[in-house]
Computed example of a mutant assay.
Amino acid sequence: MQYQLIQTQNQLNVFVEHIRNKPILAIDTEFMRRRTLYPEVALIQVYDGEHLALIDPLAELSLFDFWQVLRDPAVLKVLHSPSEDIEVFQKYAGFVPAPLFDSQFALQLLGNGNCMGFAHMVKNLLDIEIDKSESRTNWLQRPLTIKQFDYAAADVFYLLPCFKIIIEQINDAGFFDIVINESELIAQKRAYQTPDEHLYRDIKNAWQLKPADLAVLRELAAWRRNKAIRKNLALNFVLKEHCLVELAKRKPTSLTTMRNVPEVDSIEVNRSGVEILKCIEKAKVIPVADFPEPLRRLIDFPSYKKVAKEIKQKITAVAKKQAIPEDVFASKKQINQLISWNWKLTSAEREQTPKPDLLNSWRYEYLKDTLKEWDV
């Protein structure tokens, strides 16, 4: 396995010329995400079947021409389980490479089980054992070791021959457009940002709170994400989720009383206490008429289990007819997403929220007649 480490502009320019008109590129990224909200890209691996490069984004490089290659609709970009790679590209390139072929999803679509890891795929398709001991390495350190470079290069070196095996089966089954469309759906979902005023609904145990508490939680949840974005900190490094709920319940009026709130430690009070108090005070002056409605879990709806079972049965019938694994069509989470969309959101709120997966993308083409009563 031969590869090139690219750390100068001239090296990158030459490599871009080599790959510019290649129809298929295997791509991977290495990144770190320990305390940050956004992934910190540390390496970009690219292989066209002839030239394999490890691009160092920490070097002073203009990636403009390279990004143009990834934008080219005539170039198929192959990645394995690209959800987080998509976020890397959204953050650092400002777009998601397309068309994008996810080899992990393609295997799932072919009935090879959920979430097959890269090493398992290589062993299964190529009968080659690869070393994954560097998977938790610090990719931002410099210099990287030869072992780290070898590990990173292998991720695309073996991806391309795996793809060639998978694509034959995908084309025979007529599933190519489904694979491409699924990656587009992931990109759409990664790009969506829940409005500030709705963030509180996704906080665990928020359903236990009263409307006055939810008004506080709404302010705190919006503040937490905005601070996370501003500081590039993971949400729980701003304030842990369960602390939000305790603060909303108890509504401390001073830093001293805040320190007595269970689960809230002194470090969090020292770091963010004043801001938290401002959120609580802001919520206290909100008119009762503007308090959020109590949150209901799906299980609180009397007909939920019956309806969920009926939807699942309908989807199972379509899945069998189309020879597509049922769990690819719809997970329990996706069925719940559909029901929540209809039962929990107002028409105005639906305007601000992406459609459920089952009413979107390739799934909708197969299910639109079966689920037409849910397409509100």
Rank of each mutant, 00 (worst) to 15 (best):
I6V: 14
V14E: 14
H18E: 15
T29V: 09
E30Y: 00
F31S: 02
Y38K: 15
Y38E: 14
P39V: 08
V41K: 07
A42D: 04
A42I: 05
Q45E: 06
V46I: 13
A53C: 09
E60I: 11
F66A: 04
V69Y: 03
R71V: 06
D72M: 09
V75K: 05
L76M: 10
S81E: 08
P82Y: 04
E84G: 12
K91Q: 13
Y92G: 12
F95K: 11
A98K: 14
A98H: 11
Q104N: 11
Q108F: 08
G117I: 04
G117V: 05
G117F: 03
G117Q: 05
F118C: 04
E129V: 05
I130Q: 00
T137I: 01
T145L: 00
Q148I: 01
D150L: 02
A154C: 13
I165H: 11
E168D: 11
I170C: 07
D172Q: 12
D177P: 09
E182I: 07
L185S: 14
A187L: 05
R190V: 11
Q193G: 12
P195W: 00
P195N: 03
P195R: 03
H198I: 10
N205H: 13
K210E: 14
A215Q: 05
E219C: 08
N232W: 08
N232T: 10
N232M: 10
L233S: 10
C243R: 09
L244A: 05
V245N: 05
L247H: 01
T253M: 14
T257E: 14
R259P: 08
E263C: 15
E263R: 15
S266W: 12
V269C: 09
N270V: 08
S272C: 09
E275K: 08
K278L: 06
K282S: 14
V288D: 11
R297M: 14
L298K: 07
I299A: 13
D300F: 07
P302A: 09
S303T: 13
K306Q: 15
K314A: 11
I315M: 01
T316V: 15
I324C: 02
E326D: 13
E326M: 13
V328G: 09
Q334S: 13
N336F: 02
Q337M: 03
Q337W: 01
I339M: 04
I339S: 02
N342S: 10
R350C: 02
E351C: 10
T353F: 10
P354G: 07
P356F: 00
D357K: 11
L359F: 03
W362F: 06
R363H: 06
E365P: 10
E365G: 11
Y366M: 09
Y366L: 12
K368G: 00
